[in-house]
Simulated assay, not measured.
Amino acid sequence: MTPVSDLPTLLPAVLVWFIHFKPSLSQDGEATTFMDYSDDYSLDYGDFPVPCVKESNRQFRRWFIPTFCSVICLLGLAGNLLVIATVLHFKRLKNMTDVYLLNLSCADLLFTLSLPFWAANSMTEWVLGLAVCKAIHVMYKVSFYSSMFLLSLISVDRYFAIAKAVSFYRRRSQAMFLSKVSSAGIWAMAVIFSVPDMIYTTVNNNTCTPYSSSSDHLRVKIQAAQIALLFALPLLVMCFCYSSILHTLYQARNFERNKAIKVILAVVAVFLVSQVPYNLVLFWTTVVTAKGGTDCRYENILLYATDVTQCVAFLRCCLNPFVYAFIGVKFRRDLLKLLKDMGCLTQERVLRSAWSRTRASGATDTETSTTFSP
């Protein structure tokens, strides 16, 4: 017989045995054990979401983005530095287009200087800290906004200079003042529109990004604003201005008409080829993000498309000097003189180049420029 003093120690053991091992009768008279209860509460692990594996996209980024950005950076630095050096060396700030081209080259140069950081960000973890992350991202966005707005201003300037030549000639004394004020306004607007990136950019998962996740609502707002301000608005302005310029040129009868039309077509083609694919992918990515995502395979396809089209869009910063500056008669002449002064070209080569251009045009180059480019 168990002593009464041992009951306090035996009662907990009996209680545990009764809960875990004592069979109990169900309503139909069958015994139900602890294992039977565990079957009723078994978990279906197939209901849990499986993380999307993006390792293949990371491997692609590690070699594609650095390679592409390196080429763009080298070409952009060379082209834009030549434009800036030529303008400053020969003091070519004599009309609105010269001012806009100088600002455009500065914006594109600033943009190319940010590319090495994004290439490094795609290859390895971001180790430069939050302050540098915010600074580089703001520099990238300010240069991007300002360059796209300046492209729009250049088209407006050419519209008034060609399609509205009479009214533009009457106000030529105010042109330089307006160009400097509008350029300063463009840079101020670019800084203001970059404030959200300045606030929300952070280091997330060892990556410098303004987005906390692929389904972030902030991402939808930023990408929608980018499409509207950096693509739709400049595209509408350029389409209106250049279509009006083409209409005016087709009615002209001078020898430079066909040359100017080719320049306009080159300007529009560069903008469309570089910007349309990326903005279409960005638009669809924004729609998918707003809906709450999609399957893993489709998400990886969108990532590949975004990486490729974004790098193509970056080409704009190294093509702008060739389309807007080097194609102009006066600018090419000044560039050859600068290269001669730097010892890169001989006097004979400069004269030969000038003679070949004169024969190709069928007339002497004017001091002003072609009918379109400076």
Rank of each mutant, 00 (worst) to 15 (best):
P3T: 08
V4Y: 08
L7N: 09
L7K: 02
L10V: 11
P12V: 10
A13G: 06
W17R: 11
F18S: 11
H20T: 07
F21K: 07
K22I: 07
L25D: 05
S26D: 15
T33C: 13
T33L: 15
T33N: 09
D40Q: 08
L43S: 08
Y45P: 04
D47N: 06
P49G: 12
S56H: 09
S56I: 03
F60C: 00
F60P: 00
R62L: 06
I65P: 00
C69I: 05
V71W: 07
L77G: 13
A78L: 10
L82T: 12
L82M: 13
V83Y: 04
A85T: 13
L88S: 15
H89T: 14
K91I: 05
R92A: 02
R92G: 00
R92V: 01
L93P: 02
K94W: 03
D108T: 08
L110N: 10
L110G: 15
F111L: 10
F117D: 01
W118L: 11
W126K: 04
V127E: 15
V132L: 10
K134Y: 00
A135R: 03
H137F: 10
M139E: 14
M139R: 05
Y140W: 15
K141E: 14
S143E: 02
F144N: 11
S146P: 07
S147Q: 10
L151N: 06
S152L: 11
L153H: 03
S155G: 15
R158D: 09
I162R: 04
A163L: 00
A163T: 08
A163E: 07
K164I: 07
A165D: 10
Y169V: 05
R171L: 14
R172H: 12
F177D: 12
S179I: 01
A184N: 06
G185R: 00
I186D: 01
W187N: 01
W187R: 04
A190M: 06
V191Q: 02
I192S: 01
S194N: 02
M198E: 02
N205L: 07
T207R: 06
S212Q: 14
S214G: 13
S214W: 10
S215I: 14
R219L: 04
R219N: 09
V220C: 08
A224E: 06
I227C: 01
F231P: 04
L233R: 06
P234A: 08
V237P: 04
Y242E: 07
H247R: 15
Q251P: 04
F255L: 09
E256G: 02
R257G: 00
V268G: 10
V270L: 07
V270N: 08
L272W: 11
S274G: 06
Q275H: 13
V281W: 04
L282M: 12
V287G: 04
T289V: 14
K291Y: 11
G292I: 01
T294K: 10
Y298M: 14
Y298P: 05
I301E: 03
L302H: 07
L302E: 10
Y304V: 05
A325S: 12
I327C: 11
F331D: 13
F331W: 04
L335G: 01
L336A: 08
L338T: 07
L339V: 09
T346Q: 13
T346C: 11
L351N: 13
R352T: 07
A354M: 15
S356I: 12
R357S: 12
T358G: 09
R359G: 08
D365M: 05
E367W: 14
T370E: 15
P374R: 02
